[in-house]
Amino acid sequence: MTTTLGRSFRPEWFPVVRSEEVGPRHIHRSQLLNQELAIWRDDDGRVNAWENRCPHRGTRLSVGVNTGKAIKCQYHGWRFASQGGQCSLIPAHPDMKPSARYCVNTFECIEKYGYVWVRLEKGGDKEPLLTLSDDSSLTTLRSIYTMASATRIRDWLMSDCESACKAESLSLEISLSQIHQRHSFCVEALAFNNQDNESITIVIYLHPLTDEETVIHSLVNVDIPHEIRLEELRRYNRLFRTIRNVIETDHVR
């Protein structure tokens, strides 16, 4: 079922998974605006974003096999070729050319800013646009799953987050300030490190799985050095886990 949220934002780009998580011969299961997705990379490095359903009998493709050139459905072994999603082989009829109607429903996808981005319908911007330009100077942070709507999280970030940080109610090493909205579900802020008194730009993008479930993706405009990366990632992870807990608790109320 397509909800009002889904209909309104299907033409927009959303990050659905970090690029590094879509490894060779792997199929990543995701969801966007109530639409199940199978995200996978072929042996040429090209990423695919498909409806997570075999057009033959409806089996989830994410439980199939990534052969490097196609996805092999786990049920009857049908194979669907990279990029177009056209069925390339039916094992029960190996000499028969599969009908054009046996094709997976595919979606536009692009890799940018360290993420795989997907949109469910054409329209709007040609590709994801952020104020950050140099991918090499970015660091993607750990994504956080939340049981709250994307609109609820966005509204809290815009109205309550900065005041909560100023009041030290979050009691964390990193606080957020100068928060402003860039796109429908994208906000940009300054992340202030309370230990070394330095601030950097952070971009937070909300990925609505369903009407009431959201993944918070984020990245910072700096290439965090390897020797301190783990500890820095932990600091940001504590920040976003606390934000999640505050939002979910308030949401329940």
Score class of each variant (00 low, 15 high):
40 W>D: 02
43 D>R: 06
242 T>C: 07
223 D>W: 03
49 A>S: 12
252 V>R: 15
228 I>E: 09
154 R>H: 07
97 K>G: 10
99 S>I: 01
28 H>S: 00
36 E>G: 01
66 N>C: 12
235 R>I: 10
240 F>L: 14
196 D>M: 05
247 I>G: 00
133 S>G: 14
160 D>E: 11
178 Q>D: 15
199 S>R: 10
46 R>L: 15
41 R>I: 11
71 I>K: 13
145 Y>Q: 14
129 L>E: 06
146 T>V: 05
197 N>M: 13
226 H>V: 03
21 E>F: 08
251 H>Q: 11
201 T>N: 15
24 P>F: 06
137 S>Q: 15
30 S>Y: 07
195 Q>W: 15
37 L>G: 04
25 R>Y: 14
187 V>F: 11
191 A>D: 03
22 V>W: 00
76 H>E: 10
54 C>A: 05
119 R>N: 06
215 V>S: 13
150 A>K: 07
61 L>T: 12
215 V>L: 03
74 Q>F: 07
220 V>A: 01
160 D>F: 02
173 E>P: 10
217 H>P: 00
108 E>P: 06
173 E>K: 14
128 P>S: 06
243 I>K: 00
165 C>A: 08
160 D>I: 00
18 R>V: 07
175 S>C: 15
219 L>T: 12
156 W>I: 01
43 D>T: 08
114 G>M: 04
233 L>F: 04
151 T>K: 08
8 S>A: 15
207 H>E: 01
199 S>G: 03
68 G>K: 11
109 C>M: 01
179 I>L: 02
62 S>H: 09
18 R>D: 01
163 S>D: 04
177 S>N: 12
7 R>K: 05
59 T>E: 13
24 P>I: 09
213 E>H: 11
62 S>L: 01
183 H>Y: 02
17 V>H: 00
185 F>T: 02
212 E>L: 11
200 I>C: 15
143 S>I: 08
208 P>N: 07
17 V>G: 02
117 W>H: 02
